[in-house]
Structures are given as structure tokens and as C-alpha cells.
Design a protein around this nucleic acid. Sequence first.
DNA 1: GTTATGATCTCCT
DNA 2: GGAGATCATAACG
Length: 200
Amino acid sequence: MKIPHSFYLSADVVSVSKSLLGKYLFTCINGLITGGYIVETEAYNGVIDRASHAFGNRKTSRTQTMFMEGGIAYIYLCYGIHEMLNVVTSVEGQPHAVLIRAIEPVTGIDIMQARRNMERVQPNITAGPGSLAKALGITRNLNGISLQSDALWIEDRGLSFTDEQIAAVPRIGVAYAGQDALLKYRFYVKDNRYVSKPNK
DNA sequence: GTTATGATCTCCT
DNA sequence: GGAGATCATAACG
């Protein structure tokens, strides 16, 4: 059921980002399984992408996870508050990653609701990378974990979308990246309630 | 050692 | 529509 390791070794992070739409993402934290299918992603295209932490081949203790072989998770803290989940792709030495921005919840919705302190289930329970990580119980101690593990993994259950159902637009929150901020590296399923709203 | 800032979200007006 | 939260990271001295 888990997507094979070879899937993540593709050199084309943009097409992997697109392919991940409709795939099922799960976590098992403290024995609690939560997950759903991915409806929004963004591609971070290695050393030539100004929006990427690894731009210019910048190797630091934080970014070393991105330089490892694909098929693992890159998780980091942003704005001092939010954990972000990325899927590392391509071969060792190529710091490509896909930011998972939103899922449509399927499994363990009550658990996600409790983690988010929400009285009612609303679409924004898993819309946006920070919310998504919180709902799934993802923290930095999962940084570098294999996607073949039993704590964090992605499955293919046969769901997929056509090009007409997928929108490609510029990424969110990367205005500092100059020209690269214009690249259409954000992909989402049109008309899905769980896609994050652009914050402005 | 110090400082500026961010792949964001929530609450307030 | 806008500001505050809150801290690891990276660049600089």
C-alpha cells in the first residue's frame, strides 16, 4: 500500500508535487492513526530556487535533511510557531522537496479535532501547512524519518486527478524570492474545501 | 555573542 | 484588513 521508495527518487520535483495530489498521507503518533488525502502541495526546486532553504547549495544543520536521498520527511519550525512537513525527493545531494500544504481529512478526524482544539470540524482543520502538521501531530522529532516507516507514510489508493482538476499558481509567502516567487509551483485540487486560502 | 527574519495562523477590530 | 505571537536559524561582528 505504501508508495514505493523509487517514486521519491524522481529528478522532477515539480511533477512529483503534482503526482502527490490525491495520495493518502498518514501519521501514527502514540498509537493514534490520523490522515487523509493530499489536496495542495508546493515544489521547492533545489539549489536554483531562491525560495528554497537550500538555495545556492547552502548546507547547514537544518538543510542537511534536504540533501539526503528522497523518500524522507523534512520538518522544520517556521515563524517560531508552526511545524512544516516536506517530502524530500530526488537523489542524494539534490535538495529537492515538496511542501505538503493541505489534506482532506479521512481517518482519525476526532483526534485531529482534539489536537487543534476545535469544537467543530471546519475545513481549516487541515488547510495550510502549519494547521496540517498540528492536526497530524507532526513535530520536528520526525525530521529525517523514512516515509516507509510506521510513524509517517504515504499511500496510493487509486485516487488521482486530471490536469483540468488541478490548478497551478505561484507559491505562498515567498515574496522575498524575487523572480522565483512567480514560478507556478503551487498545485491544488480545484473546488476542494480543504485547500488553504491565500492568506491575503 | 548579537540580531534580523521567516515556505504562518489566529484573533481582534 | 491587520497586528501579534515566538524561536530556530543564519549572517554578521
